[in-house]
Amino acid sequence: MNVVFYYFNNFGRIMSALEVHIFIFLVSLAFSIVIGMTISIFVTQEGRKKIGRIILSVMGAAQSVPSLVIIALIFIFVGIGIKPAIIALVIYGLVPIIFNTTSGILSVRQNIIEAGRGMGLTQNQLLWKVKIPIALPVIMGGIRSSATIVIGSATVAAVIGGGGLGDFIFIGLRMQKPEMLISGAITVSLFAIIVDYIIAKIEKKVVSKGLQIKKT
């Protein structure tokens, strides 16, 4: 009951924290997508596949580094505030995007690429008209897990002054006010679920039907 009271009494504060959270999330994810895809495209070009495979193993390992470690490192080198928080989240959010985009592009079947080359597609056309559309389900999977990770880690980034819903959780914890803690936690969880649902919808829309049908 305390939680409900707390929630209604502090609704305005919670919503403005959510706004900050959404802002941090959107900016971080956008940077992660742009930087991550650029890196992946670069390392999967013909002749660079070795680098691609190395990147894959590095990213595989990086996925098991806790977000708190990255956030702490950024705090040491960059300092406190919303900017360092975003930098940390961009770096952490990059990992699944690079991992999935790289492995998605590398796993496009060789005969499909050969057929494309044989028909006279340029490297660029092969990339944008063949490799990326075919790898898109995997790439979207990477963006989806990146989104979930960024929302969760943004909560942790409150410790270096990132703001957002993490403040409610940490302050609630320190002041031993469970209703405050729970209000923050519920809001951030709902937000994560909604974002995941929206990205799943987008995925269904942008991925070609030809890749979604079951073999008859």
Partner: peptide, 28 residues
């Protein structure tokens, strides 16, 4: 690239593009 666009090429496993319809594959 020019040369290949003027020479038809068919390989064993065909290499049809799975994300495109038959129409779009032929129209490439």
């Amino acid at each position: 690239v020019e040369l290949r666009r003027n020479i038809g090429y068919v390989i064993q496993e065909i290499g049809l593009f799975p994300h495109l319809t038959v129409f779009e594959n032929i129209a490439i």
